[in-house]
């Protein structure tokens, strides 16, 4: 509690709050998380529109039906869009500037956010082909932290038409 200068009124009050949760990943996300521990990307497919979602959350957001199966995807894909992070902030663990990109894995119909490394920030571009760099097997777990980052894999840039529907 802090008093306003020249006053005996209480002006602030600290009320620490902490809540702990037992997270339920669900039927669709559980194989996805287990896959990450094994160095694999596992998605699910919509039986109506045939799209593959990763991470899968159990339902196709377009059709409103349960997604199915266990689609093991390549651990490489295409940068669909990106930004260069130049702003330092508290708790930052990566040296700036760095690249935050949307990566569309080959075979997936939705991109997800990832860190891009091993390339100067000013050379990252839409269509850049990248591959996952996994942490050593003994450090992997059911978390996206099993992927350290993505890096260019040397393939020619993807044609714009191949990913324009995912922007």
């Amino acid at each position: 509690m802090a008093d306003r200068p020249g006053s005996d009124q209480v002006t602030t009050l600290d009320t620490p709050i902490r809540l702990d949760y037992h997270f339920s990943a669900g039927a669709a996300a559980t194989p996805y998380l287990r896959g990450l521990a094994e160095g694999k990307f596992v998605g699910q497919r919509c039986p109506v529109c045939r799209k593959v979602y990763i991470p899968p959350r159990g339902s196709c957001p377009t059709d409103g039906v349960a997604t199915e199966g266990a689609e093991v995807l390549a651990d490489k894909g295409t940068v669909t869009t990106y930004c260069v992070v130049n702003v330092p902030f508290a708790g930052q663990s990566i040296e700036i500037p760095y690249i935050c990109a949307q990566v569309l894995l080959d075979g997936a119909d939705i991109s997800f956010m990832s860190l891009i490394q091993e390339i100067p920030a000013d050379q990252v571009r839409m269509g850049l082909r990248v591959e996952a760099v996994w942490v050593p097997p003994e450090e992997r777990g059911p978390t996206l932290a099993s992927v350290e980052y993505f890096r260019p894999n040397g393939e020619p840039d993807a044609d714009y038409d191949s990913y324009k529907a995912y922007l």
Binding site: S24, G26, G58
Partner: peptide, 9 residues
């Protein structure tokens, strides 16, 4: 076994 979406579906 289910997240909220899977509970609702």
């Amino acid at each position: 076994a289910h997240n909220e979406v899977e509970l609702l579906l």
